Simulated scan of single mutants.
Amino acid sequence: MRKFSVIIPIYNRPDELQELLESLTQQSYTNFEIIVIEDGSMLKCDTVCEFYKDKLDIKYFYKENGGQGFARNFGFEKASGDYFVQLDSDAIVPDTYFEIVNTEIDKHGLDAYGGPDAAHVSFTPTQKAINYAMTSFLTTGGTRGKSKNLGGKFHPRSFNFGLSRKVWEKVGGYKITRMGEDIEFSIRIIEAGFKVELIPAAFIYHKRRTSLSQFYKQLFFFGRARVNIWRFFPKELKMVHLFPVAFTLFIWSLAFQYLMFPILFYLSFALLLIFVLANFVKASIENKSLKVGILAIPASLIQLFAYGMGFIKEMFLSSEKN
């Protein structure tokens, strides 16, 4: 049986880890170990790991804070499995996850894979709205979890990302610890000639952020990270990545339109209203909740605007350095 090593970097989130480990006790495929890397946390999760030592093959390590990419590298070095599976600490894993992954690896000869994310029924309405914004094609968030998308080749993301030991031995681990580190790593794996695909059925429930203000900060950082990836791989900057920038500039322009071109302002406002209503309807139907639909309105606007703001700021910093 193929042995999986589950790599989990964590920083000040012991409660989240408890939910993740509990879900891992329910797996139908059980040949896996868990490597938890405490990345310089003040709120340690050692007692949580100790609680599960009789239920899971779990190893706990503490290291000085170095960022999630380098924490995963630390985990790779400690792993004994044939396949490394990276999960974020805010994940809940369905009980057939490893069974599905193992079957798909054999069926398609995958050297590495990524899986999508979804909202669990226990998530709060805000979390479900954020999940909608991050997975809907209307916000461009849906381009992340598709095997073929407007952003080019599928690049696994670290919240749900597996690779064989052979890949790690040839490509190495993360070169950067934040700012798009998982996409940079994915691109190098693909460029090395390894077979990388999305496994649609290998989804996890991803909590993401619990408030809209936290979500704004996260998406702002994602926008900055896209510019950082462009520094490494200029060809990886696609039109779809510029759509949030265009949206941000559009929002900025509304005040000017109102003062100088009222007719154009009303036309622009009507387009924005259509976008807002489309997200409200789509989110309400998908989640069967008007409350989630209402919360999806600010979440969708934040998904685009915050990303665009982060992108613009980082691009401006790049031009200043040059």
Rank of each mutant, 00 (worst) to 15 (best):
G66S: 09
F221E: 12
T143Q: 13
P234W: 03
I105R: 08
K63R: 12
G115V: 12
F280S: 03
V276C: 07
L198V: 07
Y52P: 02
K195W: 09
G173P: 06
G69M: 06
A201T: 05
G193Q: 11
A71N: 01
P125L: 08
L138E: 03
L277V: 08
M134N: 06
D57V: 07
S318Q: 11
G115Q: 11
F98M: 10
L17E: 02
P14M: 02
H241W: 09
G151H: 12
S164D: 11
F261C: 01
Q303K: 04
V171A: 06
D117F: 15
F70V: 04
I34V: 15
E104T: 01
V292C: 09
L87D: 08
W252H: 12
R157A: 14
R231W: 04
V85D: 07
T248C: 14
T126H: 02
F185C: 11
N31Q: 13
M134A: 10
R224A: 15
I10W: 00
V240F: 10
A278R: 04
R2E: 13
L219N: 08
Y52G: 03
L317P: 01
T30V: 14
A119V: 13
Q303F: 00
W230M: 12
A91S: 14
V167Q: 14
A246F: 15
R2L: 15
Q303S: 09
F222Q: 11
W252P: 00
E314R: 14
Y60Q: 05
A278I: 03
R144Y: 10
F265V: 06
P234Q: 09
R72S: 03
F265W: 07
F137W: 07
K170L: 12
L264N: 11
S41T: 01
W230E: 13
A246C: 09
K207P: 03
E22L: 14
S122W: 03
S213T: 09
D82Y: 05
G172W: 09
L295C: 08
R72I: 10
H155A: 07
I302L: 02
V281S: 04
N322P: 00
G114A: 09
Q303T: 02
D106P: 00
N149E: 09
S253Y: 07
M1T: 10
N279T: 02
L277D: 04
E19H: 10
P94Y: 02
A129V: 04
Y97I: 13
K55H: 09
L87A: 05
L110Q: 11
V227C: 14
Y132H: 05
E320H: 08
N65F: 07
L301T: 01
L110D: 15
T47K: 12
E181K: 00
K235W: 09
W230H: 11
S319R: 12
S80K: 14
K128P: 08
Q86N: 15
M179G: 06
S289C: 10
T135P: 03
N102F: 01
R224Y: 00
D111H: 13
L17N: 02
P234H: 05
N160A: 13
F247T: 02
V292S: 08
D82C: 06
Q218I: 00
D39Y: 04
L24Y: 02
M1V: 12
G109T: 02
G81Q: 07
V196F: 07
H108G: 02
K59R: 08
S268Q: 08
F275W: 07
F243K: 13
S164A: 12
